[in-house]
Design a protein around this nucleic acid. Structure first.
Lengths: 218, 218
DNA sequence: AAATCATTCCAATAACTATTGGAATGTAAG
DNA sequence: CTTACATTCCAATAGTTATTGGAATGATTT
């Protein structure tokens, strides 16, 4: 049964191609960015704070593992996830990491804002309240990302416009801010700003990918 | 905002610890084995066709990523998955690999047995038929693995005892054999043996981990 | 057609990971 | 209490992967 061994090795090796992609912090960050919608190499490099060359090299890995697709748009090359299942796997991986790694839990606690009891943490209640206008769900990501996909009833004010556009937000209702996911700090910053300005505000850890995955699992 | 960059790097680095575990073929094989129940280092090394030392080194990685727990049992040390979510992630990873990688699809086709139309491929129907005794669901893994967990209504005959124990199987009903999962070749071998002996038989690609995950998702 | 721009390819080096041999640890059995 | 056994720890080497600089590609603009 020597052949069986070879066959198995081959199979696991193929699966490991996918695992390898998820083994580098910067690739994970790129995946999370791509979960927000398609982006050019330059944008990705900028958002992940790496050189364009390095981003290109990492994206090449993603491409070779068939996890992303590219499309030329004029001068630029756009990357997008090849399948929603890639976003789901990203969510599964970081969720397991959060469950198992104490170091990660501690690091996340540090960036958490004080919870606010007036705001529900469960999905269904939040949606119901947003529908009735009892809370404002606020997407603080860049506009393009909001346009690509957003939570139900969410309103878009990118973080860097928030200070100027405060007037658009009602002062009498709580604001639930969200961004790209638990490792994106924009929502945290938004909440801090809003609280300083006297708003009742709360940070939603989930981003669109996390929300979608939770929704499709019910 | 220099601190934000550092914080993010730290977070993704933690998640990558989990990803790294899934980036080595041998570690994946060990995870799949551990999905079948707890096992000693020696057993794991033997089943994965690697040296005990190498197995120990890989298991150390799993332990450091908090994905497995150990317990001393006399002379031996037993490893087990720390959480069902680890098995789920293994299933998610190999499922995505099967969806995206053509090389893997081709390799799996080679080891697939001819399908048999009499046997349903969907879970609910299979269970219903097994309950009524219209098919025999046969677990061909070693007995301990069957005892740790098995599919509903499954009967246990380990592959290496199958030839001698053929008499236990009814000749008039189809036999659906399964083993550890899609990369385990035992069920395929069982089906080939059974067909040679005149039985109607079919190979179920899913193992217990795949079945459980599919069940909990409905 | 030349210049510009975004991106990739190639090659080199630095940093990490896998694998193996030998020594150490901790348990069990004589 | 000595020996045997299962496993891990440590150190060394071979093999991969990350990262960067410079050249090449392919599309747009002048």
């Amino acid at each position: 049964m020597k052949g069986a061994r070879k066959t198995k090795d081959l199979l696991y090796e193929q699966v490991a191609r996918i695992g390898k992609v998820f083994s580098s912090p910067k690739r994970l960050e790129l995946i999370e960015l791509l979960c927000q919608g398609e982006k050019t190499v330059e944008t990705l490099a900028l958002e992940a704070s790496i050189s364009v060359k390095l981003a290109s090299a990492h994206l090449r890995e993603l491409r070779m593992a068939q996890l992303v697709e590219t499309e030329r748009q004029g001068k630029n090359i756009c990357y997008r996830l090849a399948d929603k299942a890639v976003a789901d796997l990203w969510v599964s991986v970081h969720t397991l990491a959060e469950e198992r790694l104490i170091e990660l839990q501690l690091a996340l606690q540090k960036i958490a804002t004080q919870p606010d009891d007036l705001i529900p943490s469960d999905r269904d209640t939040l949606i119901k309240m947003a529908r009735r206008g009892e809370v404002v769900v606020l997407d603080v990501r860049p506009t393009e990302e909001y346009l690509a996909a957003h939570l139900p009833f969410a309103r878009s004010i990118p973080l860097d416009e928030l200070r100027q556009r405060l007037a658009e937000l009602p002062e009498d209702r709580p604001i639930v801010a969200y961004c790209r996911g638990p490792y994106c700090l924009m929502a945290k910053d938004a909440v801090e700003l809003l609280r300083k300005e006297g708003y009742k505000s709360e940070h939603l850890r989930a981003g669109v990918a996390e929300w979608d995955m939770a929704a499709s699992r019910q």
